[in-house]
């Protein structure tokens, strides 16, 4: 798992080995503003799924400090009741500063979990802005967790989190203002278009008391069923593979370009361009032609 996360030596062959055993799990993203109860909710949900005999993976992502490069990963502490469950695997990840990179590393850690037989995998991220929609790309069902009086939620809606969410959760339903927030959320759902034939449910929960969690689990399962029956699951999978091939290709080309620039022969090309006997775009095209990539 660490090897997959760090892309250490041996990553390529490890991926090749596990890949045939991946792709079968239901990937559930859980996002929302800080402190809305995401970790507590996952813990409660997973306890519920365990009763059904499911093997569950949990990936929790916390931000890395851009200044020190360190991070304090404090989600696991909310999941103590799961620590000794044999069929639960919890892995904390730090974002390590790359919005795209975290999506990539998360995807690979998720694969590691699929390979060891996890059937449902929850991915918790802090929904603080745009960077987080990248992580939501990894999941198939995205759950947005909010709480009463959360001004952040309104911000998030503006930032476009709304578009990626399939289920709204109003957690801390025991607090003042929950009724008002519930009405607000419901009106948001009603005013928005139901994307692709799925109507976003609003589920009110009290994670600390395991209340409403049954309903939430049913909604999550219903969304998965919807994805499967409608054929969207297949479409989403194909689109992501496409995206991944493209990312990998770009990374390799990037690497190639760097090597090429460091090559001594490049300075002759640069001399020519400095002397205005060639232009940079033509030079790049010539290199591509040499590679057989441009006719």
């Amino acid at each position: 798992m660490t090897l997959l996360e760090n892309r250490d030596q041996g990553y390529d062959s490890a991926l090749k080995v596990i890949y045939p055993r991946t792709g079968g799990a239901h990937l559930v993203g859980v996002t929302g503003p800080p402190g809305t109860g995401k970790s507590t909710l996952i813990s409660s949900l997973v306890t519920k799924y365990l009763d059904d005999g499911c093997a569950i993976g949990i990936v929790v992502v916390d931000p890395t400090s851009p200044v020190t490069g360190g991070s304090l990963l404090g989600d696991r502490i909310r999941m103590k009741r799961l620590f000794e469950e044999r069929s639960v695997f919890i892995r904390s990840m730090a974002s390590r500063g790359h919005p795209g990179g975290i999506a990539r590393a998360t995807r690979d850690v998720v694969r590691g979990m699929e390979a060891v037989g996890m059937e449902k995998i929850f991915i918790e991220t802090v929904g603080a802005g745009q960077a987080d929609t990248a992580i939501a790309d990894v999941a198939q069902t995205n759950v947005l967790v909010t709480m009463p009086e959360s001004g952040d939620t309104v911000q998030l809606m503006k930032a476009g989190i709304l578009e990626i969410a399939h289920i709204f959760v109003l957690n801390k339903g025991d607090l003042d203002g929950a009724d008002r927030m519930e009405i607000l959320l419901k009106s948001l759902v009603d005013s928005g278009e139901s994307t692709e034939g799925w109507t976003i449910p609003v589920v009110r929960t009290v994670a600390t008391k395991d209340e409403g969690v049954d309903v939430l689990a049913s909604s999550i399962d219903a969304h998965y069923e919807f994805l499967r029956d409608s054929g969207f699951l297949e479409t989403v999978k194909r689109r992501r593979i496409e995206q991944e091939i493209s990312e990998s290709l770009i990374a390799s080309l990037h690497e190639y370009a760097k090597e090429k620039m460091d090559h001594p022969a490049m300075s002759a090309t640069i001399d020519r361009i400095v002397a205005r006997r060639e232009d940079p775009v033509s030079a790049a095209k010539r290199i591509l032609r040499e590679l057989g990539l441009q006719s």
Partner: peptide, 23 residues
């Protein structure tokens, strides 16, 4: 330790040795 650039997983108080080792 976090400020020194490490990734610190903090699981708080009242842990059993089993919980600690599993984690």
């Amino acid at each position: 330790l976090r400020d020194a650039g490490m990734e610190v997983i903090y699981i708080g108080i009242r842990n059993t040795p089993e919980q600690i080792v599993n984690s």
